[in-house]
């Protein structure tokens, strides 16, 4: 076979290989996509479709039980921002953010403190870790009922203990000054162990070499914590911040069981208000409008946090 013929053959082969590769990639991509279809279908049916429906309902006057309803344009949003709903909406938003702030503070500060305290390998510490972590796995409603009795004005053990020290009984759940704090007592008891466990696992992942080098340089315990532990825990802190933020903004169960949004709406957090609008006042149209705006707020805050964290989070790698 002449050299010229060989060249021609090679030239024929190259385009064939080139066309084969994209086909292969396309097939692989299709396969990958098909693998995600069940999950996507699930999300489409139970997450995305309800979101679209919620948005649609917010432009209607549907009350959930009537079959007939009509589109009312921006009426529900006007009620929310410029009508009688505005005052309640701002109050509810303030209460929700206050609750969220404290839950995040308890989870991060309490969790980190306990993790630093319990970061030791011995049986008593492991028992204490288990005790602190356990409340997370007790149902919210069950714990809420127990806490209602602990915090009860007349028969509660907390007031009994306070009285023993000469301190007057407090109407923990029935005063607007203490109701939110009382709900946060339950929240703190439940979440602090979770924060501790996550911080503990992150602390165990920090290479001991950093601490040894710092020790050699004369850094004390506080300095080692400030300049090594804290920065290297920042990805975990970000993770805990975002997940706690989203979870606490959606608080419902503890408020429903312990206060029903009261007293005098002092614990009327956003999700509870949405529930009341839909199922007590039969205004699912308004509830949908509030839920849509609330969704937008959550999305915006989460995105902003992620954006800000790019600059301030230190990844060890």
């Amino acid at each position: 076979m002449s050299e010229g013929a060989n060249m021609t053959k090679k030239a024929d082969k190259v385009p064939a290989a080139r066309t084969k590769a994209p086909n292969y990639r396309r097939r692989e991509k299709t396969k990958d996509f098909l693998c995600t279809v069940p999950a996507l279908g699930f999300f489409a049916a139970f997450v995305y479709y309800p979101i679209i429906e919620l948005f649609r309902i917010s432009f209607t006057n549907w009350n959930l039980i009537k079959d007939n309803y009509k589109y009312v344009g921006l009426k529900n949003y006007t009620w929310l921002f410029a009508g009688s709903g505005a005052e309640k909406w701002l109050a509810s938003l303030r209460i929700t953010f206050t609750y969220t702030f404290w839950e995040i503070a308890i989870t991060l500060a309490g969790g980190m403190l306990l993790a630093a305290l319990f970061n030791r390998e011995s049986k008593p510490f492991s028992t204490m870790r288990a005790i602190v972590f356990m409340p997370k796995y007790i149902g919210v409603s069950t714990s809420a009922i127990v806490f209602m009795w602990i915090l009860n004005d007349q028969f509660g053990i907390l007031n009994y203990v306070l009285n023993a020290f000469g301190i007057a009984s407090q109407p923990w759940l029935n005063s607007e000054k203490t109701a939110l704090a009382s709900v946060l007592i339950l929240t703190g008891w439940r979440v602090v162990g979770d924060g501790m466990m996550i911080y503990l696992s992150a602390m165990k992942g920090i290479s001991p070499e950093y601490y040894e080098a710092a020790k050699l340089d004369g850094a004390n315990g506080l300095q080692r914590f400030r300049f090594i532990t804290l920065p290297l825990l920042s990805p975990t802190t970000l993770f805990l911040f975002v997940t706690t933020f989203i979870a606490s903004m959606k608080v419902f169960q503890s408020v429903d069981v312990m206060t029903s949004g009261g007293p005098y709406e002092a614990t009327n957090v956003m999700v509870y208000w949405i529930y009341e609008l839909a199922f007590v006042e039969f205004r699912v149209d308004r509830a949908a409008a509030v839920a849509c705006i609330f969704f937008a707020i959550l999305l915006a805050f989460t995105m902003a946090t992620m954006k800000l964290s790019d600059k301030n989070v230190h990844y060890e790698s």
Binding site: N152, Q154, F155, P171, L173, N174, V257, T259, S260, P263
Partner: peptide, 13 residues
Amino acid sequence: AYGKDASGIMRQN
């Protein structure tokens, strides 16, 4: 009598 546990407290009283 007011609050979530008001009914129970009232009965007990």
